[in-house]
Write a protein that binds this DNA or RNA. Structure first.
Lengths: 176, 176
DNA sequence: AAGATGGGTCAGACATATTGACGTAAACTG
DNA sequence: CAGTTTACGTCAATATGTCTGACCCATCTT
């Protein structure tokens, strides 16, 4: 363990190809831990940048999805974030006050409020995305193409059936 | 596209093997979203069980790591969770009051407080682990062995250098 | 016209985390 | 041995993100 030449011996071990027995506790725990560390460390990486702007992670999540899907209705964002109207309401109000997002009424359904980023909001989101992009693309590059596909597939399997379409439709708005 | 059931065309699209251009925005965003949904939905899946016992996620994280590494010192747990002493202190006090964990003094270093689960704590953790295990192993099985390896590799790349040893050492205590 | 949906808003509360200071015991180091 | 560092605990005050549940209005659907 303290042997410097094999400081990553343990990572190497966990790298050993998955055993034929998928359900072994050790492998499940390893996956949970990596998921936990991967997710928490990645999200922490933007905290400094965010707090400089007086924003929190909740703001970023909203910002992210609005960037991803311009003219996103509130109801859709609510489903993506899986929080209550109240919680989201406060976040959206603050983002609007800071001039990061703006809203318009839906054409087909005028009850809808469609959210998009302002110029300032786009700049802000881009700056945050850049930090995340650097880390994630480094991880992609280090793992190699085939492994990126594997990464996606397992994660897709983790998304409950009910949410899958929601997730997979993201980004569609920009192509159409 | 080895998924014959092809139950969702959109997921299938995102399943398309990673392009040679790793750094393309679309692929990074796809990864971030899957990581977000995978992680949040998985963790949400134990909330009901937890709240029945009057516990929160913070308690579970502590419980999990103590289960994973019996006789874990507080300092180590602090590093794993990356929270402050105060925050952890409250959680540990509550777990102790509920009789889920117990502590002993370190042999080599008597300043250390070593944490482990009580019988009750083991039962509780096992029950929670079981829910997570079902979901994660289903995702493993659905993705296939090679993809599980990819899942691990990308996530490992996401863990900052400084935390890698910490992560990779998990589970060692039980073998030794 | 009735009901469902999209959105907003109130009060009150809980869970989780923070900073910064301070204290004690034990270990390490000159 | 004296001085410093480390491991742990604890105080008060505060911030953030979330929740429940009630209630409202505008608009769409039937």
């Amino acid at each position: 363990m303290s042997d410097p030449s094999s400081r990553n011996a343990n990572l190497a071990r966990s790298n050993a190809s998955a055993s034929p027995l998928f359900l072994r506790e050790e492998e499940v725990r390893r996956g949970m831990e990596l998921l936990y560390f991967g997710y928490t460390r990645l999200t922490k990486s933007i905290d400094d940048e965010l707090s400089e702007q007086g924003l929190g992670r909740a703001h970023h999540r909203a910002l992210y999805f609005i960037a991803r899907e311009p003219d996103l209705p509130v109801s859709q964002l609510l489903r993506l974030l899986a929080i209550t109207k109240q919680s989201l309401g406060r976040v959206l109000t603050e983002l609007q006050q800071r001039g990061l997002i703006e809203a318009s009424k839906g054409k087909r359904d005028r009850r809808q409020k469609l959210l998009r980023l302002t110029q300032t909001g786009q700049a802000m989101e881009a700056e945050l995305f850049d930090i995340l992009r650097k880390r994630l693309s480094a991880a992609y590059a280090g793992a190699g193409q085939d492994n990126v596909t594997g990464f996606w597939r397992v994660l897709e399997g983790l998304v409950p059936e009910a949410d899958r379409e929601l997730v997979s439709d993201l980004g569609e708005g920009r192509k159409a």
